[in-house]
Amino acid sequence: MNKKRILVIASFAGSLIRFRGDFIKSMVENGFKVFTAAPTYTESDLEKINAFGATPIEFNLQRTGLNPLNDLKSIKELKTIMKDNKIDLVFPYTVKPVIYGSMAANSCKIPVISLITGLGYAFTGLSAKARALQRFNEILYKLSIRKNKMIVFQNKDDYQLFLDRKVISKQQPVNFVSGSGVNLNQFRFKEKNPVDQVKFLLVARLIEEKGIALYLEAAKRLKAKYPQTEFHLIGAPETSPSAISEDELNAMHKEGIIVFHGRQTNIEEHLHNNDVFVLPSYYREGLPRTTLEACACGNPIITTDSVGCREAVKEGENGFLIKPQNLEALIEPMEFFITNPDKIKQMGINSRTYAEERFDVNIINNDLIKLIKGVLKI
């Protein structure tokens, strides 16, 4: 019997490995022939995807901004990829792959399961440009996903927003998963037991919407009061309009206020070396992967009571939820852990338990594969 052929579409080749690697391997193990489409693979990306048992294919995609001519070319390329490789089902994730991948697949009469991984800047920003982009994206989503066989959300808030904005109807088939999941064998538990020095860690894109500026200000205040405390930050410099200045980060690093690590790949090691994970994001998240990894490694979580972020915290059990864009609300739980380091151990154990119950990548991948088999009727 011929293997069913699945095309996974991403806007960034590296995310296929970091966020979808286990899913790709699971599909291959379940007897599917898997292709991945993304722009600009590195040699390392190609090697890893081939090692998963999948076939990488490159296509042109402008990740940000709007250029109708380039976007039409992306749709045309995707249609060619689908036809040439006799694709049976398309699985796109993130904004542009969902929109353009769905348009291409629908025109080829290929079934689509689209994964909404968060709505990002266009549904977060307060500027006139952001509001205009939001309206435009709503139209594109409505046009592109209305014929999809299944729309998978990572949180109920995004689903409700799509209903409220009439992007989808209640009749359209939807499902829910707890983010991309986390590999509990890769992100192992390590018990926290700080005595007189508490270490905080934030891992995120270095943009305002991720709450980086709030974290930096909290670090300034708390470092002056508790000089032994450490505030670690991991993230690559950004070119976004709301990017945090790399010069500012380096200056604060030299002053000893923060420990700025730049881009890092060994996130598990950093989670083990630090005590409490912080993400004061007000970005329109799906379900941030970093918080799931922190839970798995046994870090208590401080994050915002906002879309996507709140999913990773049981209030008072494995961390605290705070009001978005509120410095005092951020400082309060950070100071709590500094002055009550004995609470970190049990909250960290609770984080791991929560990850095992809800965020195990095997549970999530099995759910997605059941959806795929259901759509393909196999």
Rank of each mutant, 00 (worst) to 15 (best):
I6D: 00
L126K: 13
V177Y: 04
F19D: 12
R135E: 13
L222Y: 02
N30Y: 03
V276Y: 03
E246M: 14
G319V: 05
P173W: 00
I151V: 09
K96H: 14
S107F: 03
T124W: 08
A236H: 03
L115V: 01
T64N: 10
K4N: 10
I364H: 08
L222G: 05
H261S: 15
C295D: 08
P237L: 07
S178F: 15
L115N: 08
H272F: 11
N2H: 11
N250P: 03
H261T: 12
G348H: 03
G120E: 02
G14W: 10
V276I: 12
A54G: 06
I116H: 02
K190L: 14
L202Q: 12
L376K: 00
K129F: 11
K199Y: 08
R221M: 11
L133T: 15
P241S: 12
L126Q: 12
M150Y: 02
E238F: 05
Y100P: 13
N60A: 11
K76P: 00
I363Q: 11
G211N: 05
P227E: 03
K86N: 06
R205K: 15
L233D: 02
K323G: 04
D164H: 01
A224L: 13
V8Y: 13
V361M: 00
F187Q: 09
N137Q: 04
S15A: 12
K225G: 05
L202S: 12
L133E: 14
D158W: 04
Y215V: 10
E317Q: 15
L271V: 02
F189Q: 06
D247V: 15
K314F: 10
T36H: 08
I75E: 00
P92K: 10
I145D: 07
P39N: 09
L184D: 08
V361R: 00
A204Q: 08
F153C: 03
I81H: 04
N274G: 08
T304M: 12
I267D: 00
S245N: 15
I24G: 10
G101P: 08
C295P: 01
V174S: 10
I145W: 08
A355G: 01
I81L: 11
K192N: 14
I302V: 04
K210W: 04
L330Q: 07
A224W: 01
V375W: 01
N350F: 00
A224H: 07
R205M: 14
S281F: 11
T42V: 06
G348D: 01
N50M: 07
G65P: 07
R289N: 07
S15Y: 13
Y282G: 09
V98K: 06
E317K: 15
A37E: 03
D305A: 15
V90A: 11
D157W: 00
A132M: 10
L161P: 01
F320K: 05
E138I: 15
F337T: 12
M334D: 03
K76G: 03
I87R: 01
I207S: 08
L66V: 15
